Simulated assay, not measured.
Amino acid sequence: MPMTLRLSDAEVDALRRRAERENRSMQDVARQAVREYVESHSRAELIDQVLDEELPRYAEALERLGQ
Rank of each mutant, 00 (worst) to 15 (best):
H41R: 14
N23T: 08
A14R: 08
A59N: 04
A30Y: 02
A10I: 09
L51P: 03
D48I: 01
Y58M: 12
M1R: 01
Q49V: 11
A44M: 13
E22S: 10
D48F: 00
R64Y: 07
R64T: 14
E45G: 14
A44V: 11
D9E: 15
E63M: 06
V50S: 03
V50I: 14
D9P: 08
Q27K: 14
G66E: 12
M26H: 01
S42H: 11
A59D: 09
V34F: 05
R57F: 13
S40E: 12
V12D: 07
E20M: 01
I47H: 05
V50E: 05
Q27W: 02
A19D: 02
S8G: 09
A14M: 05
V34T: 02
Q67I: 01
S40Y: 01
Y58S: 12
A14C: 02
R18D: 11
T4A: 12
Q32T: 10
A33V: 08
D52R: 10
G66K: 09
S25K: 06
S25Y: 01
L15R: 02
E60V: 13
M26W: 01
E63H: 02
R6P: 03
R64W: 04
R16S: 15
E11S: 11
A61H: 05
M1H: 03
A33Y: 01
L7Y: 03
R24E: 14
R21K: 08
P56W: 01
E20H: 00
D28W: 09
M26Q: 13
Q49E: 14
L5P: 03
E54T: 13
E60D: 13
R35E: 06
L55M: 12
L7H: 04
L7V: 08
A19I: 04
R24H: 05
L51R: 07
R6W: 04
E39N: 06
R31V: 12
M3T: 10
S40M: 06
D28A: 14
S40T: 12
L7S: 03
E54H: 10
R18N: 09
R18Y: 08
L46Q: 15
E54C: 07
H41S: 08
V12F: 03
L51T: 05
G66L: 12
A44P: 06
M3C: 11
E20W: 00
A61F: 06
R21L: 10
Y37Q: 01
A19E: 05
A33P: 04
E36W: 00
I47G: 04
M26I: 07
R21H: 07
R16Y: 05
L51A: 07
L51Y: 03
Q49M: 09
R43A: 15
L51D: 07
L65H: 03
Y37D: 03
D52H: 09
A33C: 11
E11T: 06
L15T: 05
M1A: 12
I47K: 02
A30R: 01
A44C: 07
S40C: 04
R16Q: 14
P2C: 03
P2A: 05
E60P: 01
T4F: 02
E60G: 11
S42L: 15
R17N: 09
